[in-house]
Computed example of a mutant assay.
Amino acid sequence: MEQIGQHARHNHLHWNPRLGSRVLINADWYKDRGEAVTRMAEALTHWLCARDDIAAVLGLGGSGNTALVTQAMRALPVGVPKLMVSTVASGQVTQYVGATDLGMVYSVTDVAGLNAISRRVIGNAAHAAAGMAQNTIPEASDDLPGVGITMFGVTTTCVEHLRKELAGKIEPYVFHATGTGGASMEKLAESGLVTGLLDVTATEIADHLVGGVMPCSADRYGVVARTGIPWVGSVGAVDMVNFAGRETVPDKFSDRQLLVHNPQITLMRTTPSENAQIARFLTERLNRCDGPVTLFLPLGGVSAVDAPGMPFHDPEADEALFTTIRDTFKPGPRRHLIELPLHINDPAFASAMADELLRMLP
């Protein structure tokens, strides 16, 4: 009886309708399965990334296999065809797709076994993957160097000036700094599909540190250190944390300075202490870079609403940002800090950034 009791404590009785009785299921299996799926995803990731003969990747599965296979797919370079047929593809798929070019196909029925529906859905996916694998896109011989640029509504003027300054010299890939936008740009850099980065806008850091809805990850700027890609950047829009509608702003921020940007977006002005945190986050990562890096500080304001007479004009908060950057940024032979007495949207500020990028590019 003691052995049976010990056995029961580590297992669960589940009704089996086929047998018409209860059967024992080892409870450790549930715990170990999650660990096994994690390890299998890591193994598949290493295996796929070590190959040089992958023409396309096609996955099939429910939630477990979707998580496993898409983790490996996300590690592949942008441009490698990736297609996942999944029972969870009709819902929220951000965690599966991430910042890469991964296609999700809803399986409609379960993928366990074939029926008239699944045979058609899986067959279509297989033909799609085969078609992508057999029809590679040729490189254009006259392509200009691709440069990733981060933009937000309040730094759009700066980016427009940059595009004019660099017209005919680079091909701009503009990314809205919404968390996913910054990650997508860095995924292209990791895939070798951009030649340099004009990282004008850093508002994702504020959301990451303070709790906004458009955060970067802790690995933001990590690709710059890993790849040595030429990087010219600034601190655009770090004067704000982004929330959804006004009613979504947490109660703990009820006494903060808020600006309703539109019915879906509410901005919150960052404080001096938050700006110091943002500065340290940025410099800690840039200090790890051995490639060419230049950080520009717009001493006249970091966004369209951070200028004299505008709602977020706060010289004390801006000075906390600039002072902390000066104190923590480590200049080097290829790592530079440039301060300009200009607003970020001043044409001269964009011209200086453009000139610096062209100096860096091969």
Rank of each mutant, 00 (worst) to 15 (best):
V223A: 01
E190D: 08
E284Y: 05
G233Y: 01
A183F: 02
A354M: 08
D314S: 06
G168Y: 08
T203G: 05
I117F: 00
L162A: 03
V224E: 08
P333A: 08
L297D: 04
L358T: 04
L83T: 06
R226E: 08
P250S: 05
D239M: 05
T248R: 10
T195M: 03
F329E: 03
G148R: 10
S191D: 04
P250N: 02
T155E: 09
F253S: 05
I4M: 12
E316T: 10
S141L: 11
H208L: 09
V57S: 04
T70S: 03
W47V: 11
R246A: 15
T180E: 15
G212P: 11
P315A: 12
T323A: 13
I278E: 02
N262E: 01
L259S: 09
R51L: 09
M240F: 02
R334N: 02
T150I: 00
S273T: 14
Y221A: 04
P331F: 10
A167C: 02
G61N: 15
V147R: 15
V69F: 15
D318H: 03
F312N: 11
L357K: 15
H176G: 11
R18E: 13
P292E: 14
H161S: 13
L102G: 05
V85R: 00
V108L: 04
N11S: 12
L198T: 11
C158M: 11
H208C: 02
N275E: 02
A276S: 06
A348Y: 11
S234H: 13
D53Y: 05
L286R: 07
A89M: 00
R269N: 07
V105D: 07
N242C: 13
E204Q: 01
V88Q: 00
R226L: 01
L321A: 00
I54V: 01
A125Y: 07
R256L: 08
G236D: 00
